[in-house]
Simulated assay, not measured.
Amino acid sequence: MPLYEYECPRCERTVELLVRSGDEKVACPECGEVKLERLMSAPAAPNMNGSSRSLPTAGPGEGCGAPRCCGGICQ
């Protein structure tokens, strides 16, 4: 289920809401406003190397992860 970030124009609160389908109506949990503005946000990615500052990367010779990867020589 996608998690979207919205801003309420009435109370100016920013909230994250789970949206099960594109037809689902959302409302501000604080004031009940239904005309929320969906915000652009960065997608979440798992952190595989223990650092909270970087995204996981492939090691030397592991390739880029694309379906037709060239085996680590992608530039």
Rank of each mutant, 00 (worst) to 15 (best):
S21V: 01
Y6S: 02
A27I: 00
V34K: 15
G22A: 08
R68N: 14
S54F: 14
E24R: 02
L36T: 05
G59Y: 00
R10I: 12
P60C: 02
T14D: 04
C28R: 08
G32A: 12
P2H: 04
P60L: 12
P56F: 08
E24P: 02
A58M: 03
M40R: 12
C74H: 08
P67W: 09
C74R: 06
C64M: 09
G22F: 10
G63F: 11
R38A: 09
R68Y: 09
C74I: 01
V15Y: 01
T14L: 07
K35D: 15
N49V: 07
C74K: 00
N47S: 14
C28D: 12
G71Y: 11
K35V: 10
S41T: 09
C74L: 12
E33D: 14
C70Q: 11
L3A: 04
G32D: 08
K35Q: 15
P29E: 05
R53P: 00
S41H: 13
E30P: 00
E62A: 11
G59H: 07
R20F: 03
R68H: 11
C69Y: 05
R13G: 03
A66L: 13
D23T: 10
L3S: 07
K35C: 05
E24L: 07
P60I: 01
R10Q: 12
C28E: 04
Q75V: 07
E62I: 00
C69S: 13
C69N: 11
M40F: 01
T57P: 01
P60F: 01
G63P: 11
G65S: 07
T14V: 15
C69I: 03
R38L: 03
M48L: 15
G59E: 14
P46V: 09
E62C: 02
G59K: 15
P9S: 06
P67M: 03
E62Q: 15
D23S: 10
M1E: 10
G32M: 12
